[in-house]
Structure formats: C-alpha cells, structure tokens
C-alpha cells in the first residue's frame, strides 16, 4: 500500500512542477464549452436544455487529452520499464498513477463545472446534479481511458487512436450522466442515476486496472 501513496505523491509532484500537462486540457475544456453558445446564438432559452450534454462532451474530450500523456513520459524515459520490473505489484503502481491523474483532471473539472453550469443558466438543482454526476463519472472515464493510453504507447498518432478506441466505451457514462442532470433539472429524483453511475464506477475500478497493467506489459514488449 505504501507504493500506492508513493506513486500518487510522485505523480502529483511532477504535475505541480510541470503544470502544462494538466493545465492545457483544462483550458481546452474551458474553450470548448465557451464555443457552444457562440455556435448556437445568445438566446438563453435553449441553453439549459443542452448544458448537460455540452459539459459532458467537453469533459469527455478533455479527459481524453489528459489521458493521452498519462503514460507517455514514463514510457519515453524508461520509468515504465522500471515499474514493470519492480518488486511491487504493478497494479498498485498503475492505480496510484490513475488516482493522481484523476485528482488533476476529473476532480478539477468537477470543481470547475458549477461555473459553466451558471454560464448556461442551469438551476441550482441542476448544478448540484452536474457536479455529482461528474464526480462519479470522471473516475470511470479516467480508468477506461487508461486502457487506451496503455495500448497505444509508443505508436505514432497515438492521440487520435486513443479517441477511436476509448470514446465508444464512454457512451454509458455519457448517457447516465446527462440523464441524471436532465432528471434534476426536471425536478425528479436522481438517486437511481447516481447509484448506476456508482455501480459502473465500482465495476470499472475492479476490472480496468487489470486490463491497463496487462496492456502496459504488452506495449513494452516491442
């Protein structure tokens, strides 16, 4: 368990010292969301209807961008080889990296989301629902994305490839997340949606790190 904390600490340290990798996806997130009103027109009527979808799609894309670099530097400088040839279980190291990754991408976007919800004139119930849905949904996306990131290590055009591999897997989260916000805005209970998102997260936590670590081993074998 020690190695889990050490890995989280190590990755956070690097993110703090090299902030571009985490700041850029967040800026991307911000710009994408701000572009939608420009494309639709400034009349506020339709905004709160599309808010959930827009925010979710932006989060999806920003997560993909940040996930792309997740293993890349460790792959390029050989740190990944050392992780595989370690006395520690690789899965704990991978889990540590994933947690660190989520803290600087998913969690930050969740914290930023109320701001955007306000820009889209979402009601306060809706704002809470968006934040809750992102809180439960973003870890699932990071976990699933890490499989794609691990499989495309060392490939040219890995970024586009990750999108093709991973985006279809994000569909359930997207559907549940937006439906949850719709339910909240419509004034009905969204506990069921939250439970489903939570269940999805639990299943993904159980399975995705196994697939990711296996994929890392496969990708290193080149």
């Amino acid at each position: 368990m020690n190695i889990l904390l050490a890995t989280i600490r190590r990755d956070l340290l690097q993110h703090v010292r090299r902030p571009a990798d985490i700041v850029n996806p967040l800026v991307f997130f911000l710009i994408v969301i701000s572009l939608f009103p420009l494309g639709i027109g400034p009349s506020a009527g339709t905004f709160n209807e599309i808010a959930a979808g827009v925010i979710w799609v932006a989060v999806l894309l920003a997560t993909l961008l940040s996930i792309d670099v997740m293993f890349k530097s460790d792959y390029e400088d050989g740190a990944l080889e050392q992780m595989v040839l370690s006395k520690q279980p690789l899965i704990l190291v991978v889990l540590g990296k994933l947690i660190a990754q989520w803290l600087v991408s998913g969690l930050l976007m969740t914290l930023m989301s109320p701001l955007f919800a306000l820009m889209f004139f979402v009601s306060s119930d809706g704002i809470l629902a968006i934040a809750m849905a992102l809180l439960l949904g973003t870890p699932t996306m990071v976990l699933l994305g890490s499989i794609g990131a691990a499989l495309t290590l060392g490939l040219k055009n890995g970024g586009v490839l990750i999108a093709i591999l991973v985006l279809p897997l994000y569909i359930p989260v997207l559907i549940l997340g937006t439906a949850m916000v719709d339910a909240a805005v419509g004034g009905s209970s969204y506990t069921g949606h939250m439970l489903w998102l939570g269940a999805l997260l639990l299943v993904t936590i159980g399975l995705a790190p196994i697939a990711t670590q296996a994929s890392i081993r496969i990708s290193l074998s080149q």
Binding site: R10, L13, Q14, R17, R18, S73, D74, E76, D77, G78, A79, E81, Q82, L85, S86, K87
Partner: peptide, 17 residues
C-alpha cells in the same frame, strides 16, 4: 524470484524530479 535490476537504453529517471 525477484525481477533483476535492469538498466536499459532509456535512463528511467524523471526530468521533473
């Protein structure tokens, strides 16, 4: 049983640390 100590072409140290 242990993995060996492996030193490859890639240096395996992080620039930001």
């Amino acid at each position: 049983e242990d993995y060996p100590l492996y030193i490859g072409h890639k240096v395996g140290v992080k620039d930001a640390m």
